[in-house]
C-alpha cells in the first residue's frame, strides 16, 4: 500500500502528541512545524520507522521572518522517502538572538555543507556540527547576508560614478 500523507500525519501525531503544529499540504507536500528541540528526534523517527523510511535529505535551508519576534529564523528540511516516493517538509523556528539548532550531520553526511551554507547566510548555529564555518562567503565577513535587514543596493542611487556599468 502506498504511503499517503494521511498515514504519515497519523504516525507523527501519535509519536509526538500535540507537539507538531500547522500541518498543511501546500501543493501536495505534507508540511508541518515542530519545536526546535525536536528536530533530530523527528528526523530519527522518520528515518528509522519501518513504514515511513524518510532516509534521504533533499534540502536544508533557512528563511528569515523579521516580523515574528522570538521565532525569526525558520530552518526548513525537505526529506524524501525514495521507496514509496513521498516527500515531506518540516520547519523549526529559532530566536534570532540565539539561533541554536541541533545539527543533522550525525544522521546525514549531506547535511554538513547544507548547514554550513545555512550558517553562512543566516547565522543559524548548528550545535554539534563538526566544522561550522563559512563556505561560500569570505571568512572575514561579519554579517549574514540573506537576512532581511540587508537590502540589495538601491537601484536608483545616483552617487555612484561608474560609467563602466552604464550608470554614469
Amino acid at each position: 500500500m502506498a504511503l499517503t500523507n494521511e498515514t504519515i500525519k497519523v504516525r507523527l501525531e501519535k509519536q509526538f502528541e500535540g507537539q507538531l503544529s500547522r500541518m498543511d499540504e501546500p501543493y501536495g507536500m505534507l508540511t508541518f512545524e515542530a519545536p526546535k528541540e525536536l528536530n533530530l528526534k523527528i528526523m530519527q523517527f522518520l528515518y528509522d520507522d519501518e513504514e515511513l523510511r524518510f532516509q534521504f535529505l533533499t534540502d536544508l535551508t533557512a528563511v528569515h521572518y523579521p516580523s515574528q519576534p522570538g521565532r525569526e529564523l525558520a530552518v526548513v528540511y525537505h526529506l524524501h522517502n525514495l521507496v514509496d516516493n513521498v516527500r515531506i517538509r518540516f520547519k523549526v523556528f529559532a530566536d534570532i538572538k540565539q539561533p541554536d539548532i541541533f545539527t543533522a550531520t550525525r544522521l546525514y553526511a549531506a547535511a554538513n555543507w547544507m548547514e554550513r551554507e545555512t550558517f553562512d547566510f543566516f547565522g543559524v548555529n548548528f550545535v554539534g556540527h563538526p566544522n561550522l564555518k563559512r563556505i561560500l562567503n569570505v571568512d572575514e565577513m561579519d554579517y549574514f547576508p540573506l537576512r532581511k535587514e540587508y537590502p540589495l543596493e538601491d537601484q536608483t542611487r545616483t552617487d555612484k560614478d561608474d560609467e563602466m556599468f552604464g550608470r554614469g
Partner: peptide, 20 residues
C-alpha cells in the same frame, strides 16, 4: 502567496527550487 518545491532532473542530479 504560497510555498512550493519543484525539482527537475538536471545534468548532474536533482535540481530543486524552493520558492516562498
Amino acid at each position: 502567496p504560497g510555498e512550493v518545491y519543484q525539482s527537475v532532473e538536471g545534468g548532474n542530479g536533482e535540481l530543486g527550487f524552493y520558492f516562498i
